[in-house]
Structure formats: C-alpha cells, structure tokens
Write a protein that binds this DNA or RNA. Sequence first.
RNA 1: GCGGGAGUGGCGGAACUGGUAGACGCGCUGGACUUAGGAUCCAGUGGAGCAAUCCGUGGGGGUUCGAGUCCCCCCUUUCGCACCA
Length: 822
Amino acid sequence: MMDNPVNRTRNDDESGYDPSAVEGKWQQAWLDRRTNTTDVAAAPDPFYALMMFPYPSAEGLHVGNLFAFVGADVYGRFQRLQGHNVFEPFGYDAFGIHSENYALKVGKHPMDLIPQNIANFGRQVARAGLMVDWSKSVDTTNPDYYKWTQWVFLQLLRQGLAYKKQAAVNWCPSCKTVLANEQVIGGACERCDTPVEQRFLSQWFFRISDYAGRLLANLDGLDWSETTKTAQRNWIGRSEGAQISFAVRKNGADHTIPVFTTRPDTVFGATYLVIAPEHPMVASLTSGVYRSAVDQYLARSAKQDLVTRKSNTEKTGVFTGAHAINPATGQEIPIWISDYVLMEYGTGAIMAVPGHDERDFEFAKVFGLPIVRVVCAEGAEPSEPLDEAFTENERGIIVNSGRFDGMTVSTARREIMKMLDEKDAGHPVVNYRLHDWCISRQRYWGPPIPIIYCDDCGAVPVPEKDLPVVLPFVEDFKPDDSGVSPLARHEDWYRVPCPQCGKMSRRETDVSDTFLDSAWYFLRYPSVGIDEAAFDSRITKKWLPVDSYIGGNEHAVLHLLYSRFVTMVLHDMGMLEFEEPFTRFRAHGLIIRNGAKMSKSKGNVVIPDQYIEKWGADAFRTYLMFLGPFEEGGDFRDASISGVKRFLDRLWASVTSAVDLSASNGAHDPDVTRKLHQTIRKVGDDIPKLSYNTAVAAMMEYMNVLRRGERSPSRAEVEPLVRMVSPFAPHIAEELWEKLGHTESVFDTGWPSFDQSLAVAERIDLVVQVNGKTRGKLSVAPDISQEDAVAAVMNEESMSKFLGGMPRKVIFVPGRLLNLVG
RNA sequence: GCGGGAGUGGCGGAACUGGUAGACGCGCUGGACUUAGGAUCCAGUGGAGCAAUCCGUGGGGGUUCGAGUCCCCCCUUUCGCACCA
C-alpha cells in the first residue's frame, strides 16, 4: 500500500519539536508526579468521565478503540480544565468466548494470554497519552473483581430475579459446543459449516423483562444520544394489545388458550389458532390420528437451529385435531401448530386473522384455511374477496362483525374489548419483546456461577463469605459434546459439600455471560482496592452516577441495557441511591479507511503504534478528532495527518518565538485579540458538544491569524491557545506551558477566560440582497440602522442597479442582512 | 418488511433558531528561499465565461423576500432488528 506510514523518513527541522522526546518526557512526568491520579475520597468537585473498557485482543489496540478513547479523554481533560476533579479510569473486559476461541486457535491458555494482552493494551493506552488513573484499574478476569460479579448474581437471586429454566440453544455437533446466535451463519456453524441444531439446556436467566416498563419509561429523562435511546426503545418493543382467551373442550374438560394480539378489533376474522411447537399444550391438544404428523413436525422444528427457523419464508405447520371457540363469533375454529409462532413472545399462541395479517394470510393460503374480511377500506365493497392481507387500520371500517359493523377500527377496538371483557374472554395487556436475559454459558472462560446443587436442599447459593468461586486452571478447556462446561470434567473442582446440610453436592459448572462482568464495572472503579464491598457506599455516593459515558453504539442494546437493569435492581435493594447509571451517554461514530471499511482480510487496518511512532501521539490524537464529526465517525486518510502535524509545528514555533519576547507582552493587535476571544468561545462551545473537528478547525483559524504577516505573537496571544489545545495534544501543551515558565501542569490551570467585549467586531459585512439574490456586501458598524443601511445601498451603483427604483419592501436582519424587494 | 442515520468541490468535511454555501484541512496550480525539496513561507483554487454575469448542496414539486436547512413525493446509500402476532 502506497501510504504505508513508516516508509518515509522525516528530516527534522531546526525548530526543536521532537514529538517522541516530548511525549516520553511527559508520560513519565505524569506518572512521577501522579498528575492523573484522583483522590477519590477527598475530591471536592468530582466528575466521572468514563469510556467503555475494551476486550484486550491479542492484536492490540485498534484505531477504532483509540478514536473512542481519545474522544472520551478530550472530554475528560476539558472538564478538568473547567475545574472539576476528573476521574478517568481504564480497564479490561477480558472474559468471554472471544478470548477463549482465540486461545484455542493459537494453542495457548487464556490465563497466560490475557495478562500479555493487557500489558500490551496498557502500554498502548499510555503511549496515546490518555489521562488514565492507573491506580484504579479493573480486569474482569481477576478473582478480586469477579468475586463481586458473583456477588451481583447472588443479589439478583436474592431478589427473586434469577431463575433456572430449560431453554433452546444453538449447538454445533461438530465443534461440540454451544454457539451464540451471531456465530450461526445461514444455519451453519461459522467455523466448520456444519448445520447447527437446537438443544434444550437448563440455564440461568435474569428477569429483565420484569423491568421492561421502567427501562423504557426512564429513557425519556436520560441525556443520551437519541440513536441509542431509539435502539433501546425498539429492543424493549412495547406493544399495546389484548390477551384473548379461546375456550377448548378436550376430553370432557374445559381449557382456555390465551393469545396476545395487537388487533382485538379483528377478532371476528380469527378463523383458526396457531400455537408454537414448544407450547405446553401441544401434547394435550393433539388427538389420535394426528399424533404422528404432529410428532414428525415437532422433531423437524427441534432439529432446526434458531436462526434459520426465524428466517424461514414458506409457512409450514400441522393440524392438532383440536378446535377452540372464537369468543366473538361462537364458532369452532381449528388449532394448528407452526414454527412461525414463537414461544418467547406473547403467550406462544396467536389468533390467526388471515384477512388482516400477512403471515396468517400466507399460512391460510398454504393450508386452505378460511379467510374472512372484517376490515374494509372506506367506500370499498365488503364482499370483495381479499387477494392479500389488508393491514391498513388507520381508515378502516369494520365489516362482518355483527353489531360492530360500520365502526371505525379505533372505535371497534374499544367496543370489542368491552364486549370481550364482559364475557370474561379478554382484557387489555401490554407486551414487550424484551426477553429475559440468559446468563449461562457452557464454556470455560468466565466467572463460575456461584450455585451448588444439593440432592436434598436443591440449588443453594454459595454463601457470600465463600466468594470468589475461583475459576480453576485446567489444561483442557476445550468444549465437548456433553452440552455442559469443560468444568464439568473436573470432579475435584465441582464436588463440594452443600453449604446448608454438608452433604456432598455438585457446583454449577456453567460460567456467566461476559455482559454480566461489564454490567457493573463502572460501580467498581472508584472503589478499587476496597475489599469489604463491591462498591463503597460513601465513595459511590460521591462519584456516581457516571457524569459522562462515551462509547460505541454496538452496545446500545446489550451492555447499556444490562447496566441499567443491574443498577435498578441494586437501587431497589437499597444499595444505590440512583437507578440510572449513566447521566449522559454519547455514542461515537465509526472510522473507515479511504472510504472503505477496515478489515484484516483487506489489509487496510490502521495500526496506531506505527502512526504514533511516525507522527507522535499528539498529532495522531488531534487528527483522529479532526477527521470528522466525533459522533458520526469519519474517513481516515493518511495524507491528511500532515495538516495537523503542521499545525502543531506552527504552534511550537509560535510559542517558542513568543517566549523569546521575554517578560513583555509584545505586540498588541486588536484583530488577533478579537480572533482569540472568538476562538475561546467557539472551542469552549464545541468541546462539550463533542464537535471536536470544528474546535480544532477554529484553533487552526486562530493560528492563521496569529501568524499572518510574519509577526511574532505575544505571550498573551499564545498562552490561551496552549490551554485550548491541551485536551487534544496534551504532551506538547505541557511542554510549551513549561517553556512559558509555568511549573504546574497545564491541566490544573483552568480554561482561558472569555471576554465578550473583546470578541465583538468593530465593523461587519452586511449582506445585501436584491429580490432575494445576493448582490454584494457593505462594511458597516454592527449596529447600523435600517434607514442608514438602505441609504448606503442606494448610493452604491453596483448594487442599486439591480433594483431600478425604490424598494417596495425591505427585509432587515440587524447586523446581518439587508434584502431589498422591488 | 420495520426502525435509525446519511447524500454538499478532486477528497475529508464546515454552515447558529431559514439569512454571503464550501470554514478548516488534504490535494492541486503558481511564486519565494534553495545544490535539492517529500522542509518552510506567500498567493490562488466549486463550475462556465474575456467580462458583466450565469449555474451550482441526490432528483422532482411546494412554502418564503430568501431554502443545504422547513413541507410533500421519489432515488441512492449505510447501520440496527428481523415471522414480535
């Protein structure tokens, strides 16, 4: 690739700016002077600036990681310059299938691999000049940390929010392992291409769905990126509808099948019911001659993996032989089984209204079931047969529905609900698509779930005093065919006495989901080093909730939702005073390279180390923040870094020449002063908005004014610039600040003060339009009156000639624009 | 299919509540200093035209004195979710 950053050598100029020397010096100085260490107990004005901790991959830091971290660091450093005691911690999310698979691939043990990766990440993060407080770091694989992850599990259990149930998982029969949905590609294992099967395993779940309403409602009050909030709203998926009961007579006894629908107004058109293959009533509903067909269908759908099943397009199904009574029409309708109905949503059963639901329509076509129209477009013929499902409900009129005929959909909805309610056959309900959170992983590389199974006492939680349940070092951590974790092969580990009765029992051998590790790490950071609790209440009260959280939108619905859930639960238990963990969250964008996505296979991945070596961390950081709007991401182009480097070179030259001016304030130029104050305002406005690219541009503009006409700037003109640039380029800022004669860190000196009166221009360009077209501009005092402005324009032949007379109408925007309409 | 974005010079990208479109940077052109320039500095740089001027923010309508910005209809693109009843 022609733009390999390392194949060009710089011949360094005489200016004396050597980024690697300056950066090395200050990185060491920050450590020696404990510049970035926050006194969490004493800090009078705490500000918690959080970035998403990374998974420490073997490849090292990706430029996308660094983009996010630097963006968070700029914000944190800015807040510090505003006078806050900023706490900016860093850690590692090092458990999980990703690490485990990589270890398997390279034939090493994760317990050996992870510390190396962490060391490498730490080195890279430090080299990038992040303002990290290294005294408070977190590594999720450290027993000192996951002891408390296990403790969090026990709290949920205590609250009745953790439970165990059978659930389907994807199973690769060749790799002999459970796969996450993302690892199933087109129904096959992503690694070996073997068709994936469904298995039913007993697993631990958290009742996050109990919190669905609150998780949704609280979003309105959060200062978060709208994109993230929207993603969470969709994920939680609230829908209002009704639960309607269909009566079934079976073997002389009466049963009901509850269904969920968002369209109770169409109940007269429900011509059959469909239940999911996993529905508990399948066996009892199936009668004699239909049994073998049903069994066949169940076997077939059980073999299918979960991903393909959901993407099946042609409808399949089987009749149970049973019928139910439609509570509206009183008619008997058949009960079918089909995999297009999902057990996880609603009640696992639906009333099928083929006339007004596309999926039901398709199914009815395949199996020749009756299709009845109950909603009609206004003015259309109700007897007209349907050739597709009519799903429009805004302006529909109810037909074929007895006394409800002629009502609008919304009226009928209300009236039909009332009728069903009177018959005790239906009531309004709110349904969420959010499922309970399955946290069991049949894997090795995670915190063991702290449960012991006793034949007499059942599932017994490990007493808190016995935590952590340490993950043992085992040579063979490869998953096998058993459907349980590799830990289940280590009897010496899992055989333990029951904590309640002492009888020999068996540990839970599954480990917990990585997302549980990351669902509470922000609570731990300020309390790192405290052994008595997961989080110290006094320190937590001081530092939490998090003031600013910056991270990727790929975690919009998992990590960010789980963290909110765990926080809410701990709040409900009285352990936290707040129920939302992140006061403000901003999602950053994605970095692409030369207009294309970065990928290892394309060989176009930016390796930060190389760039930092060539250009320096300051130039690299500043470039990352300059290449595009932070919240949208941008296009990384090697050729463009030079512009930022030039800016830093000029900054260096300007300041060092200003220093030579000795104690005097040097030249005073009102244009420069005005630009300076405009820049202070602009940069101070832009950074809190994360509009880093325009903040850098504004400083470049100021630099251009500062150096116009080969003048030597004064100390008063450069000192504020050094402070403004410091969040982006902290090393050069510290060095120049020192050269300017200061002894304290530039980050402890505050933000430059802004003076409105110095920012105001003496003359402005008033835009002159004639009939809405721009015809020129007028250099005038900012407070010129409309009359004076019009008179001035009429005197200017070059503008007034477009009018040809007196204006009929004048639009005057003071200090900005004059539009004459003829 | 549903939901969220995004379409502006050769390129990355600016443009506050509608008010000089193209800030800033890259690249490019010319010049200065130079043995040299991949260093630095100066000037220029949306398109057409000698010029006055005209045309320009994905396409088509509309509102307005005035639209990149607001409204309606399309097109393209990208990212989520995807049989959610």
